[in-house]
Nucleic acid binder design. Structure first.
Length: 284
DNA sequence: CTCCAGGCGCCTT
DNA sequence: AAGGCGCATGGA
């Protein structure tokens, strides 16, 4: 089995910011490169200016899967143009130049964000690493490289007892993860359907899962590329909206929701990511 | 030691 | 509609 190697021309793409902007939790920075497993392929990415270089652990038949994940073909300039032309957005665009949204596997997204509730990013990463090491399929890595694992299938997680999942340090989220796995494995919840539903119906369907509220539902719909208007509202975004658009007035949740549902336009989720990342940069 | 984390769900006003 | 609290777990 030979390793494959390719380069992509990616204009206006900040790989580091994108992989480290809280939308995906499994990327690891190793000596200036980014490593992860996408579906069942280990991959290492590096960037130099407008060129992204990719290496995989096995001979890959084409690179469509990676293009799709990285969304290298989307016209970022057109998306940025659709944002409202106010000062906060201008500042965010300026500070986050090249930030992108990925298109991730909705199943992995769902579990990752169920685990994210009331957790810090480092701890979310730890839970996911444990899940993959215990229940994920090993994947091909380059010679001498430590083993890597795919994200566990719904079937594998559905077969685990709640107490066993708890021992992955996910605490009270264990029954949520288990139920989600059972729903997906049984075919009761089909992600293909969610993409074709109107966003409100897709949200409702996801929120029928225990442990999935509006915020997590929107994370899944946005970060798996199903609904670009999805607008995950966490504490940081609420703070940002209050401060930037309501002049420190403590706006109510429903007020913020109505505002964000219309104000940011058809790519509201993208705008949300820019505001979120901008807040994180600014707050350090 | 206490506090709280990219929430959710359930219980009160 | 809006506020409070418990839920596990671990790091500051």
């Amino acid at each position: 089995m030979r390793c494959a190697d390719a380069t992509f021309h990616a204009r206006d793409y900040d790989l580091a910011a994108t992989l480290n902007s809280g939308q995906a939790f499994r990327w690891r920075e190793v000596e200036g490169a980014w490593e992860n497993v996408i579906a069942d392929r280990w991959v290492r990415l590096t960037q130099e200016r407008d060129v992204i270089r990719a290496q995989t652990g096995q001979s890959a038949k084409g690179w469509r899967w990676l293009d799709d994940y990285l969304q290298t073909d989307v016209n970022l300039a057109a998306i940025l143009k659709s944002f409202p032309k106010d000062e906060p957005m201008r500042n965010a665009i300026c500070a986050c130049r090249g930030l992108r949204l990925l298109r991730q596997d909705p199943w992995e997204c769902l579990i990752a964000f169920i685990c994210s509730s009331s957790k810090q990013i480092v701890q979310i990463q730890q839970i996911l690493i444990t899940l993959c090491e215990r229940y994920g399929q090993p994947v091909q890595t380059p010679p001498g490289h430590p083993p890597a694992f795919a994200f566990p299938t719904p079937e594998r997680l559905a077969a685990r007892a709640e107490t066993e999942l708890r021992s992955c340090r996910m605490g009270f989220r264990a029954p949520y993860v288990r139920t989600a796995a059972i729903e997906v494995a049984s075919g009761n919840l089909r992600f293909e359907d969610l993409a074709h539903l109107p966003i409100e119906a897709a949200r409702e369907r996801l929120m029928r899962l225990p442990g999935v509220g509006l915020k997590i539902a929107d994370c899944v719909l946005l970060f798996s590329g199903m609904h670009p208007r999805a607008f995950p509202m966490d504490v940081w975004i609420k703070r940002a909206l209050c401060r930037l658009y309501f002049r420190r007035v403590r706006a109510s949740e429903s007020r913020l929701r109505k505002f964000s549902a219309t104000y940011f336009g058809p790519w509201a989720g993208y705008a949300q990511q820019y505001l979120f990342h901008y807040m994180r940069l600014h707050h350090r």
